[in-house]
Amino acid sequence: MVSLIVRRFFQLILLLIGISFLVFMSMHIAPGDPASIIGGPTASASDLEAIRESLGLNKPVLVQYVDYLSGILQGDLGYSFQTNQSVADAIMTRFPNTLNLAIASMIVAIIIGVTAGIISAVKQNSWFDVSSTTIALAGISIPNFWLGTMLILLFSVTLQWLPVGGLNAPFYTVEGIKQLILPAITLGTGSAAMIARMSRSTMLEVIRADYIRTAKAKGVRQRGVIWIHALRNAMIPVITVIGVNFGALLGGTIITEQVFAINGVGRLMIDAIAARDFPVVQATVLLVAALFVLVNLIVDIIYALIDPRISYD
């Protein structure tokens, strides 16, 4: 286990260096000059040159990259071209929102997904099974920006049950929970559908498995059988989905944050890409990639703990 973690950690560092290089180069190749965005439509050629110089953009790209990398190694993520504020601060103020949103939507996804999956499996081919399978598939078929707007229209504007947008109250307050509900549903629907499908099929397998039959034959009450034996096994696919879906979820926050006016890393990222704010793009992409890899590492560890048969050679 320890060697697994150590090895993965080194892989993570290599991966991050690779990603930082890719992103750095792609931003510099991309048309669009940060200086002309800061200068605005009125800037003169000399204004632009002065801005470029103050940002260090007139040095060769490779020199800039090496500077950047050595900065990161010293824990310095640089300063935003746009606001001139520390990138680390910019991320730290937004990251909790994104994390809350991601966790809340995972919770929504797990609750809906596991419940639906298990009930469908136990009552295989019942009306519940058929309709939940259909709904699950429909769930991953809805463009989530569209779903978000529809939810706002229904629950916030028409019924006035929940606030339209924003996420500024702490998540443990009633206000915070109310603010999280719609975005979490919007973002969690896709994952819920996937979890439902996965847990249904594993549950089916588990139910048909020999040891369950034996347990039933021994007269353990059916409900007990399901909850005790089956649930633990059904956890495995759920964990897989969380790992695999986490990247998609982080990607999804980009759109969800946009629709619900949530001040998160996703929105920071699109704004930065549009403004060619290189240091911010770099840092946010690295953060997202590192998170994704970390979550998958944790998933692997949990895997190994739950199911001793899995080994990592």
Partner: peptide
């Protein structure tokens, strides 16, 4: 001054008084 990237969301917030 509240940042609301989608104008239609902002209009909904105006409607609800946010």
């Amino acid at each position: 001054l509240k940042v609301v990237p989608e104008y239609s969301t902002a209009v909904s917030m105006l409607e609800t008084g946010e």
